[in-house]
Design a protein around this nucleic acid. Structure first.
Lengths: 217, 217
DNA sequence: TAGTGGCACTTGTATTATACTTGTCTACAC
DNA sequence: GTGTAGACAAGTATAATACAAGTGCCACTA
């Protein structure tokens, strides 16, 4: 807010008319604006468009002309145990392990666990053809993803086509449905030499440290 | 429960109408709610506050009772080159390399580059005492951070107290000032066994794949 | 003991008055 | 022509007030 016209008039020792003319010049440059009965205020600029970059890896690949492929490695209904049971509950689940390729090159190894009662309609061909989120027929309202780094071990190295002990990004994602109920658990492994995460922080982040970082243990 | 509208009216010396308007703003943000004849109360399940978890690593450490320390390894004014010149321009910069410790244990190795004309007032003691963002006297409006994984090499391993070839999270952060101008470049190295990134995606993310992932090269 | 009515309190809503603002106009001085 | 001074209309935000309706509590009663 700016001071009122009459107030400016007294402080600058000029008549209200001249003050007004000056303000109207600024308004023509859309630096300030006024509402009758309210006052003058500095004009807000037309909101810097959020989300400058492509949101999903699929969009990015499509815009780059890269053809995404999926190769199903495992597809099994089983009882949840360990971490899966902790997140989804001690229930029957569908486990799908997939290798994602970009132009024939593997770039992600993904395992998804989904409660069996939500996955009854899914076939092996379904999950090979479409990304998983398109197949869920309940609304997904949010997710939490945790990003860490480890060394690749066992058969994962061969599947991703990298040497044993190469650095990989590991990501666990818990997707929630309405009411904050966890309905999907997925673990992703990315070879570090081909992938990285980009996070835009549109507003002034109150820290220099990378936001979202957490100490474990 | 909150005090009644009339009580707030007297304590804040404002009419009941204005108090009400203020409360209604908070209700729109579903932070509080009211029942007629009952009163105002803080809303349960505050819609998962846009930032459910602690925003910065400093806050997290503080809430855990961990004492953060900083140890300055390098502090030099020099000419920007390579990546730094590309981001900040071919100018004179201040380079600060710091080791961050939590309860005496190293958990981050950070290098910050800052244009010299914005860093003239900074001393080695300053950057040891305070996090960098507190020392900047221009407004920081946003940032982009890129997260990847590599194997730790050279002296970094010794500084972080991990074996050579251990997995680490690498983060580059470009902080912008008004007008989208890059004013800080920082690179962070975190030992993977102690740290991970957590990203909350409050709204339905239109993909199962971890959002923000990007193919490099 | 169970039920009822009254009472003091609350929010919800509407109305009026007031002090302030911009928007617009006319008259005047240099 | 340019700036000043003043008056008035119209819009805004707040204050003050009143009243309806809902809630919790307590005393009283059957």
């Amino acid at each position: 807010m700016l001071p009122s016209e009459s107030e400016l008039s007294t402080t600058f020792d000029a008549s209200r008319v001249t003050i007004r003319k000056a303000l109207e010049v600024l308004r023509d440059e859309s630096l300030v604006d006024a509402r009758q009965g309210f006052g003058w205020y500095v004009a807000t600029d037309p909101i810097r468009q959020p989300l400058g970059r492509l949101a999903t890896i699929e969009e990015q690949m499509a815009s780059d002309g890269i053809k995404p492929e999926r190769q199903i490695l495992e597809f099994a209904f089983e009882r949840a145990k360990g971490r899966v049971a902790k997140v989804l509950g001690n229930i029957q689940v569908l486990r799908v392990k997939r290798l994602n390729l970009a132009d024939g090159e593997p770039f992600a190894l993904v395992t998804v666990w989904c409660p069996a009662n939500l996955a009854e309609h899914l076939s092996r061909a379904d999950v090979e053809r479409s990304p998983f989120y398109e197949l869920m027929n309940i609304p997904l309202t949010g997710a939490t993803q945790t990003i860490g780094a480890t060394l690749v071990e066992g058969e994962d190295a061969a599947l991703l086509g990298v040497p044993l002990g190469s650095p990989v990004l590991r990501c666990e994602r818990i997707t929630e449905s309405e009411g904050g109920k966890a309905v999907l658990l997925s673990q992703h492994v990315f070879p570090a030499h081909r992938t990285e995460f980009v996070v835009d922080l549109p507003h002034a982040a109150p820290s220099m440290a990378p936001s979202g970082l957490r100490l474990v243990e």
